[in-house]
């Protein structure tokens, strides 16, 4: 019988796994051929939703346990490499880690919570990660994103929950472009939208 101190998601075999935007790989590649833009899916990343009072001892223990203090400034990212913490709300973060890290991460977080009121939910399959990078990345996103993406305003280290076209996304700014965390059921819509918005920047191949 499960209880809240045990990881909700279970270790899973790899065979038969399919990512939400898998069908778009070839079209993403074609749209990226021009050089000014790169579209891709990064499948199967670990994503763990964390809710905890940022002022609680549990929040501090969690920061220590994962080696990344939870960012408290709205719309910012802490950490990097194998573990990033994205601010989603005043008591909510999503932690990003490589494929397969979810069970271990959930266990570490739950242990660090030490019985305090904390929500740790594996949401790795809830959203997939799309990359929109290259010189024209901002131009493409500006077709559907109402945020000011100027590097002075939304540069590396910033993230935002917002909408792209008609889909909710978590937008993460990097050095070479952006990552979009997209709900799995919306992945096809967002992929189609990105491909369509890329036509002017990627050459006719993207519309194939």
């Amino acid at each position: 019988m499960a209880d809240s101190t045990v990881a909700v998601s279970m270790a899973v075999p790899i065979a038969g796994r399919r990512s939400p935007a898998a069908a778009y790989a070839a079209r993403f590649e074609a749209a990226s051929a021009g050089g000014g833009l790169r579209l891709a899916e990064i499948p199967f990343l670990t994503q763990v939703n964390l809710r905890v009072d940022p002022k609680s001892p549990a929040a501090e223990r969690i920061g220590t346990a994962i080696g990344v203090p939870l960012p408290v400034e709205p719309g910012t990212v802490a950490g990097g490499g194998d573990l990033e913490a994205l601010w989603l709300g005043p008591d909510e973060w999503v932690l990003l880690a490589p494929d397969g890290a979810a069970p271990g991460l959930v266990a570490r977080l739950t242990e660090a919570a030490g019985g305090e009121h904390v929500s740790v939910v594996d949401v790795s399959a809830q959203r997939t990660t799309l990359v929109v990078a290259g010189d024209r990345a901002r131009d493409v996103l500006a077709h559907g994103c109402t945020l000011d993406l100027h590097p002075r305003v939304f540069g590396p280290g910033r993230c935002a929950q917002t909408t792209l076209a008609r889909a909710g996304v978590v937008l993460v700014a990097g050095e070479d472009g952006f990552r979009l965390l997209v709900r799995s059921s919306f992945a096809g819509y967002v992929a189609e939208w990105l491909l369509d918005a890329s036509v002017e920047y990627a050459g006719p191949a993207a519309g194939a």
Binding site: N49, R51, H117, V118, A125, Q126, R183
Partner: peptide, 12 residues
């Protein structure tokens, strides 16, 4: 109330 709600619609 000490409760947190998280959508997992597409997780499953």
């Amino acid at each position: 109330l000490r409760v947190h709600c998280t959508s997992v619609t597409e997780q499953w």
